[in-house]
């Protein structure tokens, strides 16, 4: 009896925790038309090349560099992460649900790491790709944050500093993994490259 009571309590706590929004500001919209596929995009689908400075933090370690994202067509993108000094860490292409690794340094070449990055960029490029995602809006056409999943790979994304429809700062967090990736508009002039 005591055991079943304990299990019920745990289940209640887990289910409540699963429903409660983690962000304090704004309103979480659930089961709205947005969640059915009309979520505003946070990344341009037009063929272009955009560059961000990135900061990847895992526990207490930090790596900084530049990420270049080339949009080549519908659902096709090439993503390259390099250091400021010039060394390339990772170069991969996303096409639909497929990923092609062009280059990866040995230290980063772990299936779990690559698949996590793949998922992060898939969510970024198509925020409505999963029905288990919850969204935070400040207005119907502007996404401020999203949250996907409750497990170890739970993903939280925040979109700020909007300029001309698109956010210039993107924070991707995996709180249970203590892993985060910050993308910020770079000082490099995208027109010049």
């Amino acid at each position: 009896m005591r055991i079943s009571g304990l299990i019920s309590s745990i289940l209640l706590v887990v289910s409540l925790a699963g429903c409660s929004p983690l962000l304090k500001e704004g309103i979480w919209l659930q089961n709205t038309p947005f969640a059915a596929g009309n979520v505003p995009y946070v990344y341009d689908t037009i063929p272009s090349t955009r560059i961000f400075d990135f900061t990847l933090v895992f526990k207490k370690s930090e790596v900084t560099g530049i990420v270049i994202i080339k949009t080549e067509g519908a659902g096709e993108r090439r993503i390259v992460m390099t250091s400021v000094f010039g060394m390339t860490f990772l170069d991969f292409e996303l096409k639909g649900e497929n990923i092609k690794i062009n280059y990866c340094i040995e230290q980063l070449n772990r299936e779990r790491v690559i698949l996590l990055l793949k998922k992060d960029f898939e969510i970024l490029f198509k925020p409505d790709h999963s029905k288990i995602t919850r969204y935070l809006y400040s207005s119907p056409d502007r996404l401020d944050a999203l949250e996907q999943g409750n497990g170890i790979t739970k993903t939280l994304m925040k979109f700020t500093n909007y300029n001309n429809k698109w956010p210039e700062t993107i924070q991707i967090e995996h709180p249970y993994l203590r892993l985060s990736l910050l993308l910020k508009k770079t000082e490099y002039d995208p027109e010049s490259i």
Binding site: T49, I68, K70, R78, V80, T82, G86, Y188, S192, I193
Partner: peptide, 15 residues
């Protein structure tokens, strides 16, 4: 002057 050339970029990234 640092110039990085990549196949996917039209021009070099200069810093």
């Amino acid at each position: 002057r640092q110039e990085k050339s990549m196949e996917m970029l039209k021009n070099k990234m200069v810093s």
